[in-house]
């Protein structure tokens, strides 16, 4: 029986506020170990990794790509691909949020609107967003604004992907508000508009932010899938294009770039949440 560990952990838990150097070292070991395993697999041909790409090549090429070199021969820079994918996610998620938040608030606070809207939307919800892609391609012709073509199908799929997490979380948040808050506000002289603005909306905000965070995550999943299937420019496109050209470092760079942007956008949503909710304790 190793008896020291619980008490050790308690002490560490207390000191957790200021990361001691050993913790930083351990985390670095984790990352270096990850790259080392990749390198060993490549060097010794484990799991066909010898046909893949070495981490060294990838890092060098990634640096080049960040310096503005085109990812593929005669192609676009990583920044252009990132901007396309990012713009699709941004527009899709914002459009979804603009529709899903009001709908969610209405459905979450009114039984009648819940009965009228929820069943229809609930019937559509389980359909995976990507499977809308063929329908979207059939329905939306490619829209051209001057020299920039706006492929609406990818946008639509992102919209669908992020709509439902935002919608369901908003409903959940609006439903679980303690009725005493509304009653207290009314007794203090608030009208129903005031209650909505000063009670319902702020009380639902944490759930809305959770929904947005999930929605952005699904936005990135769907945009990559859509770009893999319908082409670019975009990071999903570059991932499959790199594979077609047998440039595996481009594949990995694309994956890492999507991961980094996904990480950054979820941090952005979190920051938005903290800014909108200064009373939050987390």
């Amino acid at each position: 029986m190793s008896t020291g560990s619980i008490s050790d952990r308690l002490v560490e838990g207390f000191a957790g506020g200021l990361p001691s150097p050993t913790r930083g070292v351990r985390k670095l070991v984790s990352l270096v170990g990850f790259v080392a395993v990749w390198w060993l697999f490549y060097e010794f041909g484990v799991l066909n990794f010898e046909h893949f790409v070495s981490p060294v090549t990838t890092i060098v090429e990634f640096a080049g790509a960040l310096a503005g070199q085109p990812l593929t021969e005669g192609g676009d820079t990583i920044y252009l691909h990132a901007v396309y994918s990012g713009a699709r996610v941004a527009v899709g998620v914002v459009a979804a949020a603009l529709l899903a938040i009001p709908l969610g608030l209405v459905v979450g606070t009114s039984d009648r609107w819940e009965n009228l809207l929820y069943p229809a939307l609930e019937a559509l919800r389980p359909i995976p967003p990507i499977s809308w892609l063929p329908i979207a391609i059939i329905v939306f012709p490619a829209l051209a604004l001057g020299s920039i073509s706006v492929p609406l199908p990818a946008l639509f799929v992102v919209f669908i992907g992020s709509f439902f997490p935002i919608f369901t979380n908003t409903i959940e948040g609006a439903r679980t508000i303690e009725t005493e808050y509304g009653q207290a506000a009314r007794s203090l002289g608030a009208g129903s508009g005031d209650v909505f603005r000063h009670v319902v909306l702020p009380a639902t905000l944490p759930s809305i932010i959770t929904g947005l965070s999930l929605g952005v995550g699904l936005g990135w999943i769907t945009v990559v899938a859509a770009e893999l299937l319908t082409g670019g420019p975009g990071l999903g496109y570059i991932i499959i294009q790199g594979s077609r050209l047998l440039q595996n470092q481009v594949v990995v760079i694309g994956m890492l770039a999507v991961g980094a942007l996904g990480y950054a956008t979820s941090a952005l949503v979190e920051a938005l949440g903290n800014w909108l909710m200064p009373w939050s304790t987390e």
């Binding site: 029986m1 008896t3 020291g4 619980i6 008490s7 050790d8 308690l10 002490v11």
Partner: peptide
């Protein structure tokens, strides 16, 4: 036995405490 003393000792039945 959840915490180890920084200094000094806790003896139970004259034996130092080692864990719960």
């Amino acid at each position: 036995g959840y915490l180890d003393p920084t200094e000094g000792e806790v003896l139970v039945n004259d034996e130092p405490v080692e864990g719960p």
